[in-house]
């Protein structure tokens, strides 16, 4: 059951990722990208990471892609932006096949030993994924978390300064 779901959503996500690049209208590209994100969210759920799935949909599909669509709408990009065929397609295809071979090589290089870490499916079931992530973020990874928040704060201030030239 789980593997059928995995293959279904993997195929759909690859298919839609391909159509992100192939589709000629920018809006349709954006829609295919949203489909890819939703498939990723489903894959996260099958990996016992429901919090990641919710965040994936909320942040990527719900916020970032809406902004991208908003920009497309404001710029009013027509369908003629992408030409049907460019040489970039060949190079891109070659690169992605190369990446696939390299990834495959690295995955197959080692043999799984079967040892598991602290966090198993049972731990996630009993504590909850959100609680585990929260605890890790505010205890073990406090410093990186604070650094990331300062980085975001700087970005927000930068955006305000850039968009508001004269006060």
């Amino acid at each position: 059951m789980l593997s059928i779901l995995f293959y279904l959503f993997a195929v759909v996500s690859i298919f839609s990722a391909f159509y992100v690049t192939k589709s000629r209208s920018p809006v349709n590209s954006a829609l295919w990208l949203v489909t890819t994100f939703i498939c990723f969210a489903v894959l996260y759920i099958t990996l016992d990471a429901p919090f990641m799935a919710a965040i994936q949909i909320m942040v990527y599909a719900g916020a970032i892609m809406v902004l991208i669509v908003f920009v497309i709408m404001l710029l009013n990009l027509g369908t003629a932006v992408k030409k049907r065929y460019t040489h970039a397609l060949v190079w891109g295809g070659g690169m992605s096949i190369l990446m696939l071979i390299v990834t495959n090589f690295f995955i197959r290089r080692s043999i799984p030993t079967g040892t598991v870490g602290d966090i198993t499916t049972q731990t996630i079931k009993s504590y909850g994924h959100t609680e585990l992530i929260g605890r890790a973020m505010f205890t073990d990874f406090l410093l990186p978390f604070e650094i990331a928040s300062i980085l975001l704060l700087v970005a927000i201030i930068g955006a305000v300064v850039l968009s508001k030239r004269e006060v």
Partner: peptide, 9 residues
Amino acid sequence: LFILAMAGL
């Protein structure tokens, strides 16, 4: 979070 995600969509 699920409800917020759906509201986002």
